[in-house]
Amino acid sequence: MILAAGGINNSILVVVLASAVVYGTPLLYAALGELLAERSGVLNLGVEGMMLVGAVMGFWGVQRTGSLGLAIVIAAVAGGSMALIHAFLVVTLRANQIVSGLALTIFAGAGGLSSYLGNDLNIADQPAKHAFSAFLPRGWQSADVVGPIFFNQSVLVYASWVCVALVGLYLARTRPGLNVRAVGESPAAADAMGINVVRYRYVHTIVGGMFAGVGGACFSLSITPQWVDGLTSGAGWIAIALVIFAFWRPTLCLVGAYLFGAFSGIPFTFQARGILSGVPPELFQALPYLMTVIVLVLVSTAGARRRLGAPASLGTPYVREER
């Protein structure tokens, strides 16, 4: 992916930034999805599971149909159908959102449905028939600094920017977007205004799952184009932390995704180049997880002071007769 030519494009900073975009993209998709669900008041801790099912079904899709476009659609549908289970449990059956989300991760995640499907569809350890790759002109890709970071990327990266803009505009500038925020802040008031709380929560949870599915497919169709059991290795959880970090704002998700993407990319870059080779590899591998904790701490102290962003009804079921 990164050209071996010397010069500034081979400098460690550029390489790390380029990997930040690569590893940040699945986080960005998953976080945007989680943001939509949480803005409607539904906390979905099943992101890791939805991503893995999206990854395995997306990979199956490309092996079966040979079309990357169809594969992404299949991944989105797979992620969305996982989210539907959660939506049914927490919206219709009013189950505890935290436990239901954990259940979804156990059901769908590593050692669950994604492994089952990977095993049953017989796609483990196969080379991918197609994978998303950089498509812009070579001259752009080799441009100094911006080339590797922004132009040597797949269409998934550019599509994710479009999604950030769309989600941002949707929430801030459209009537349904306003309604979602109302449902997330005060479902009783929204209900009184004639907004269908149940429908809004279902739709946004499912669309959130579709984003997570696409995020998972970023791994299996672009980053490491193959199916390996549990290949997201915690990205879904980092995406949930990312939503908190972003104060529930799409544009901040973009910044945060690349920040966390850099933490995920650094272990690979440093190991490949033998930088700090005296440091145990486990320390680098732990970096994304430790940084997630640290960033979360920083944000929660600031957030606790100013109470930024969190939808007021996040995590609580809406029961009309008990409002």
Partner: peptide, 18 residues
């Protein structure tokens, strides 16, 4: 098949929640 244990556990938990 592998993964069945997780699927079973998840399903039992879903049903318990419901």
């Amino acid at each position: 098949p592998s993964g069945l244990v997780g699927v079973m556990q998840g399903l039992i938990l879903f049903c318990a929640l419901g």
